Amino acid sequence: MPKARRSDDWGFPRWRSYESSRETVAQRECDRHGCGEAGLCPAPKSPNSPDRWYFCQKHAAEYNKGWDYFEGLDKEQKEERAKSERQESAGYAEASHYGWTGSGDGSRSADEMMALEVLELEADADYPTIKKAYRAKAKEVHPDVKPGDDEAAKQFQAIQVSYEVLRAAEERREWKG
């Protein structure tokens, strides 16, 4: 009789549950014809239907790109469904004002990030730093300093718009907090 071989998952922590088997597990394939990837992403077959396609990540993104989630609903039903979806995700929007996150960690919008690039600041810049950078850059390209320079005028406009975006965002954060 051959000697029993010791398991690879002895000791702590156990990497698999007790009484589990080692047989292979069948994995669902992507429902897209000709694709052999794992179908881990469910996608609705039709609006308001529980039936799902199971696609790989690439084909799920392709399928969902043109999907209208409100197709076949009348105006009142669309509004009701949009309202219920907003309520379900309201916790995420509500939590944004608590200041659990600092700037630079996804709490800034894409517009704010572009504005910070124009002012040549890092994503975690605080408002006094933003204000200081705005004033310094505005002084360099102000139309009174460089009269008749169209390029300087465009830069000055970009700097002004960037500052306005960041100032409005700061006011929103202060108002919520």
Rank of each mutant, 00 (worst) to 15 (best):
S46I: 06
S46P: 00
G36E: 11
D144C: 05
I130R: 06
K131C: 03
A152Y: 04
S49T: 12
K131P: 00
L121N: 00
R172P: 01
S107W: 09
E37W: 05
E122D: 15
P147C: 08
Q87T: 10
L73T: 00
A152G: 01
M1N: 13
Y63F: 15
Q157H: 09
C56Y: 00
T129D: 14
A153V: 05
E170W: 12
K132P: 03
D149E: 07
E112D: 06
M1Y: 09
E29L: 14
S21C: 07
Q27V: 14
D144S: 10
V141S: 15
A38D: 08
A158D: 14
T129L: 11
A168P: 01
Q57A: 11
R135D: 13
K139G: 11
P143E: 07
G177D: 08
L73D: 02
S20T: 10
E170Q: 14
M1A: 15
A115C: 11
G91A: 11
Q77E: 15
K176R: 15
A26H: 10
F156Y: 15
L40C: 06
R28S: 11
A153D: 07
S162K: 07
W67L: 04
E174C: 05
P42Y: 00
D149G: 01
R135V: 06
E94Q: 12
R81I: 09
D51S: 11
R135L: 15
D105V: 06
G102W: 07
E171L: 14
K154G: 03
E151L: 09
P2Y: 04
R173P: 02
E171K: 13
V25C: 02
L166Y: 00
Y98P: 02
Q87N: 12
G11L: 00
K83E: 13
R16L: 12
Q77N: 04
R167F: 14
G148D: 08
H59F: 02
G66A: 10
Q157Y: 03
V145F: 10
G99N: 01
